[in-house]
Simulated assay, not measured.
Amino acid sequence: MSSRRVTATVALGALCGLAWAASFRAVMSEFAGYGSTVSWLDTFAAILLPGVIVGGLLGWAHTIRLRGGRPGWRWLGAAPAVFAIAPMLLPDAIVAFVTQGLGGGAVAVALLAIGGGFATSGRGRLWARILCGVISALLIVGVTLATFGIAGPRLAVTEPRGVWVALLAFSLLVLLAIASSIPFRPVIEAQPDDGVPVAASERRDGAR
């Protein structure tokens, strides 16, 4: 894969990450209701920028996977942790997290993304993937169902708006978990005889 294609794939990943983060910001706005505000730090630095970074890292992981892997590249599976780290860098964020629990949602998103990515990757011990999958699924379902109790009657399960927000949150979280599986998946290598990309064996894949 040429450096130009690598750059294009990383840029596409960053764009997808931006679109995902902007969409999830809309979900957060619905949770907050009419009191929702948009600011440079809370919105752009703590939500949109992390989305760009995570998307770019996952795009980079995809290019590495298509080239047979490289030493240490599996650590890119921790990319969604940026969603939890970025809000903590804001002024007084740690104090608010400890005293009020603010930012806990970002931690949950990062955990379900990493756990869900590993669970759906098809690699690793089955019991570990099942455990991570169950935890991630519970977090996704928990966030989805919490939609109906966060903003009161406005987002009730009997209201079209409530169902729409719940479905939007659910689909975005599932999509993030699937995308986060890229660094955990088996690498792809080209066969010398026909050049057709195939999944590398578990033994060789584990070495990377």
Rank of each mutant, 00 (worst) to 15 (best):
A179H: 01
L49I: 11
A199F: 15
G59M: 03
L168V: 08
A96Y: 14
G105C: 10
G17S: 10
G77H: 05
W20M: 02
Y34C: 05
R70C: 03
A26N: 04
F31G: 01
L168K: 04
S39A: 13
L173C: 02
S2R: 12
I182M: 06
G72C: 03
L172A: 00
I178N: 10
L76P: 09
I85K: 12
A110E: 02
V134I: 15
A179W: 13
A190N: 09
V174E: 06
W75H: 09
A96Q: 15
L176S: 12
G35I: 10
W60V: 01
A166Q: 07
G33T: 10
V163H: 03
G17E: 11
I64C: 00
V143D: 04
L176E: 14
R67C: 09
G72A: 01
L66A: 12
F97H: 02
A79T: 02
S23C: 09
S181D: 09
G69V: 00
G116P: 13
F97T: 02
S3W: 13
I182C: 03
T120W: 10
G142F: 00
V52I: 13
M88F: 07
M28V: 13
L48T: 08
A113I: 04
A156Q: 03
R65A: 00
V187W: 08
I94C: 00
V157L: 08
F97Y: 14
C16E: 12
G103E: 06
A78W: 07
G17W: 10
G55D: 01
L131K: 01
L112P: 07
V196N: 11
G51W: 06
A207W: 11
D92S: 05
A110D: 06
T9C: 08
I85T: 07
A79C: 07
S136V: 05
F184N: 00
I188D: 03
A32H: 12
Q191T: 11
L172W: 05
A199M: 11
F170I: 02
G77Y: 03
Q191K: 11
I114L: 04
G56L: 00
F184Q: 05
T120N: 08
L57M: 14
M28L: 15
M88G: 07
V187I: 10
I47A: 10
A207D: 08
I94F: 08
W73Q: 09
A14I: 04
A207I: 00
D42A: 14
A26Q: 12
R161E: 11
V187E: 08
V134Y: 05
D92N: 14
G105D: 14
T147R: 03
S121Y: 02
L176G: 05
I64Y: 02
R185H: 05
W127C: 03
A79K: 10
Q100W: 06
G133T: 08
S29F: 11
A151V: 02
T99P: 01
R70I: 06
E159W: 02
W40I: 13
A61M: 04
A86G: 01
F31Y: 15
I188E: 15
V27N: 04
S36D: 14
G195C: 03
Y34A: 13
A84P: 00
A26K: 09
P153F: 05
